[in-house]
Amino acid sequence: MTARWEAPNARARGLGTHLLSDEAMSALSTAPDLAAMVALLEAAGIVIPEEGRLTPLAIELGIRRAAANELQRLARWFGDRSAAPGLIFADEDRRSLRAMIRGAAAGASAEARLVGLIPTPSLPERVLAELARQPRVTDVAALLVAWDHPLGSALLSAASATATEPDVLRLELEVDRWFTGRARAAASHGGRTLRRYVEQSIDLDNARTALLLAASDTELPADDFFLSGGRHLSRAAFRDAAKAGSALAASQQLAGPLAAHGVGGLLLQHAGDIARLDEALLRARMSALRLEARLDPLGAAPVLAYVLRLRAQVVALRRCLWGIELGIPPARRAAALEETA
């Protein structure tokens, strides 16, 4: 069944008006303290829990809950048989599971693992909180099995495969494979824009992995990490980039094939900083989708653009929160927001 986008697109446009305006974001970026930030967020309809109200944890939780509510309101406007909400939620689950794996491997605190994650029906707030408390990656995987999450068994097998610490890169690959399978299934019925979006996601995931492999000294064969289903980055080009010897050399090899997605320059610019690259790619994809939404208002672009804008808002709010927490001067915080806008 081909997805119909009229109703969710209309809802996405409506929900888009709930996103914070440039003026509100500017005020938040220069808020003198957490109390001022909470006041501004609540004036914009983002409710901060009473418990620990003026602490970063409570503010983070309020932001996460608000984003989850908005996504669920959007999802209700798809038909029961549409795979699109599953794709949107699976993308969030993928980010959450990666954070859980990395957090457990690094021994990060539960709070740090939850930063910026958006709960979904398959990984609701309480489950995320419980996952974040697990001391080891195998415990995270075991809990996912108990929760009957479709990725639980695969992750538990991968995490238990070695006697020593599990390989984080390999576990993340399992997460990406699971997401790619769901995304491709959803894309097959979602129309041209959704198909292109998924293909681009796979290409960018492969590029990201190639950069990490090129910068690491792993002995594992690069081919094992390649995800099928992309559009412009072939397995051979991926393999060559992964063996380039450094992230910068890899980015130079990847920039050509990925120029078709309009992100070749970003790869070169941020090759050494994956976090910055992720943010830059998010902004680039958001801009491209907003343009696509104007050209094809009945396709998937308005919904996808809204979802990326919501994610970008969570990232920006998190950045504001860190700035206050670290005592960064307001002018510097505002400048950092401008750079990422």
Binding site: A106, G107, A108, S109, A112, A275, R276, R319, W322, G323, E325, L326, I328, R332, R333, A335, A336, E339
Partner: peptide, 18 residues
């Protein structure tokens, strides 16, 4: 856990240095 938290703080601080 403390070292991981400190690492996160330093990484966050660096994001503001452009």
């Amino acid at each position: 856990e403390g070292q991981a938290a400190i690492g996160v703080l330093v990484a966050r601080a660096l994001t503001y240095l452009g």
